[in-house]
Design a protein around this nucleic acid. Sequence first.
DNA 1: AAGAACACCAACCGCCGTTAC
DNA 2: GGTAACGGCGGTTGGTGTTCT
Length: 282
Amino acid sequence: MMTKKMMVAPEETRKGPWTEQEDLQLMCFVSLFGERRWDFIAKFSGLNRTGKSCRLRWVNYLHPGLKRGRMTPQEERLVLELHSKWGNRWSRIARRLPGRTDNEIKNYWRTHMRKKAQEMKRALSPPSSSSSPRDSTSRFSDLPDDHQNQVIEGISLFDDKGSTITNGDLAVSTGDQNEEEIAKGYYSMDQIWKEIAFMEQNVISSTGPVYVGNEEHKEEVAYSFFSPPTSMAPPPPSSSSSSSGNYVSDSLWRMDDQEDIKMPLPTMGDFFVSDYGNGIEY
DNA sequence: AAGAACACCAACCGCCGTTAC
DNA sequence: GGTAACGGCGGTTGGTGTTCT
């Protein structure tokens, strides 16, 4: 039997970068038919693209509500907070950052956490060791990617596969394997967290508390990356896009579940004042 | 000036959940 | 209830621009 997973796209289906013409065509058809029925749009528009490809292009690039440019410090902080809470639930995190896509946040996370991990490696690595022919940097970079994710990017309290380290099992997550790593000279996540907390406390004049090794520390440590949140009040009741000319689709940044609603977070009004100011929907 | 390394980001892939039939 | 189609999500890759050596 032919299952959907065995099915392949027709050979003539276009791949790769989108042309301006294709963008225009897609925008036109989305405006006509809405952000649904992507397969239909793909076929009907004459674009030799899959529905998935069309959707992705729209969501990640063409959507009028998208923000461009670097993440603001507030956004960075929010990403950090939310990632510490939800792990690699990028789309969910993205809903908390109007104008940002899951792809963008994912990319940001990978890039910046890697950078952070590298900075940390440098900070943590002893000046030089005569006992070892290689420095700590090469130790890390010699690890396979997956392994690096666990050892380095685990600073998020999640491995890069998205496994959440839940209540009290930080030590379990770092587990046997990490003991082995430590024995080999790798750093445990616990150590990494301690070092990050220490560095952040020294480098950034943070007043946030830093705890390591229990459930509380997940968020507390997250705050310690940057200055602590100044406001944890619920969003202002009037933060609506209705008065704005900006078009922000409900489907992209709506709240998706009760947990979202319950979660206390800094007001988004704090974040998007200038370039996205009025286009916020909750 | 040239090559290497790094950073960024768009796009694809595979899996999974939901929906329609 | 079973199956196929579709849409969404997270992981990964590859191209390109920028910075470093």
